[in-house]
């Protein structure tokens, strides 16, 4: 597999875990048995990211405000794969799990974890988005024109 497609996969799984509700990520990791001997390279740390916008949506960048983010990094003991976890919010546990899943996805357990953790999270997000989108569509205005002067 090329480096590019590996990066794309990694980007997708990290983005999925970062945006997932922390309790769902933790629950899915626990039921998938994500529990392997590892050393913590970077202990879970809560911090912020400055979110930027653009003037007029397209123009000059400006600082809108910060959001909370938690990150952690681990190395698996038996294969030395390094995983990085970033999650929105302040859950140490979710950040560690995200890092562990990221590391394990570089091993032969990758496809199993995709199926048991990543894809369910993506499906839940899509279902949530679909439901909200349908609800929004229900509030779409259907104008009708009054015919005058007949």
């Amino acid at each position: 597999m090329s480096n590019l497609s590996e990066n794309l996969e990694r980007q997708a799984r990290l983005s999925t875990m970062a945006q997932a509700p922390a309790d769902r990520l933790i629950a899915l990791c626990k039921s998938a048995g994500v529990k392997v001997p590892h050393s913590v390279l970077r202990a879970p740390e809560i911090g912020t990211v400055m979110v930027r916008g653009r003037a007029g949506a397209v123009g000059a960048a400006f600082n809108l405000g910060e959001m909370t983010v938690t990150r952690a990094s681990v190395r698996l003991n038996d294969c030395s794969a390094v995983g990085h976890g970033y999650v929105q919010g302040r859950s140490h546990e979710a950040a560690i799990y995200a890092a562990l899943v990221d590391a394990l996805c570089q091993t032969d357990q990758g496809s199993a974890l995709m199926a048991s953790v990543i894809i369910p999270l993506q499906e839940e997000k899509a279902a949530h988005e679909g439901a909200r989108g349908a609800r929004a569509a229900g509030t779409k205005v259907e104008f009708f024109t009054m015919v005058r002067g007949e």
């Binding site: 740390e45 911090g47 990211v49 949506a57 909200r132």
Partner: peptide
């Protein structure tokens, strides 16, 4: 809190609108 970095400007054109 420490600041980890700054985001790319958010793309409001891709917003999933309520």
């Amino acid at each position: 809190l420490p600041r980890f970095g700054v985001s790319a400007p958010i793309d409001t054109g891709a917003m999933r609108c309520d």
